[in-house]
């Protein structure tokens, strides 16, 4: 399977259905127009334990608007009439399990969803979905974190699509201090694989994006975009466009 990001990719996160699926669709179109390379689309879950409070609240808003997988797939079908921008899902395993793995990955293939990141499905439990993901050619994107330690190589060796690297837990103030550790973990990954690495940990200013784009292939922007949607609701698409365009301008 091919890699799904390139050097200097901007990956933008959106919670599907926040505040409704129409707005999400228009935000994705805005992101594509502003130069994002990939959209990471959250599937809302009642108990998103591994998220920032910003994204936890987006989960709750999306569930309030009655957003479930069927609606999300229909929205992507509509989206595909307008743009082919690569999309991956970000979902907890339980909604996918309940939808049925066969159905879920079949629908991913049909709507050209290229991959899925699952915060509560570590390497050790990948066999839960691997057979289905492989059958339909959908990447299971692997997380790597600093505490993965000796597991970094093991995970990286089998990873496809790109590696989702989370250097620390949401602390952006200490970016400078962390950069050495970030570099050494990235070196470890690069020893065993050629696939691209994307960094996600609360990057929100062009200066940060520029700095980290030199270290990694892709930059994931989550909280900053979700905050824009939280603030502007249905009017978000134009604000999302402006923001992504500004961030993308430094990635070259």
């Amino acid at each position: 399977m091919n890699n799904i990001i390139n050097k200097n990719s901007l990956i933008g996160f959106l919670m599907a259905g926040d505040p409704d699926l129409d707005t999400t669709k228009n935000c994705i179109i805005s992101m594509a127009q502003a130069g994002a390379g990939l959209v990471e689309l959250g599937i809302p879950f009642s108990d998103p334990i591994a998220e920032s409070t910003v994204i936890q609240s987006a989960n709750i808003r999306a569930l309030k608007s009655g957003t479930y997988l069927n609606g999300i797939f229909s929205m992507i079908e509509e989206l595909r009439k307008i743009t082919d921008i690569p999309v991956i899902f970000h979902s907890y395993i339980n909604p996918v399990f309940n939808y049925g793995y066969e159905n879920f990955f079949k629908m991913c293939a049909q709507t050209k969803v290229a991959g899925i990141v699952i915060p509560d499905l570590p390497y050790e439990e990948k066999s839960e979905i691997k057979e289905y993901a492989d059958k339909y050619g959908v990447h299971i994107i692997s997380f790597v974190v600093p505490t993965s330690e000796d597991r970094i190589k093991q995970i990286a060796k089998e990873a496809t699509g790109f590696i989702y690297f989370v250097p620390s837990i949401g602390s952006t103030s200490a970016l400078g201090d962390n950069s050495r550790e970030v570099m050494s973990d990235i070196e470890l990954i690069k020893q065993v694989t050629d696939i691209p690495i994307a960094l996600g940990f609360g990057i929100n200013t062009p200066a940060q994006a520029e700095y980290f784009s030199k270290i990694a292939d892709g930059i994931i922007i989550g909280n900053a975009i979700v905050k824009i949607v939280e603030k502007h609701g249905n009017d978000s698409p134009s604000y999302v466009f402006d923001y992504v365009k500004e961030m993308k301008a430094v990635l070259k």
Partner: peptide
């Protein structure tokens, strides 16, 4: 690694950040 399941139940469905610990 020891068996992590009771029949089909159990396992280690947790974020990567906790796996090492």
């Amino acid at each position: 690694m020891s068996n992590t399941k009771f029949g089909e139940f159990g396992g280690q469905y947790i974020p990567e950040i906790l796996m090492g610990e």
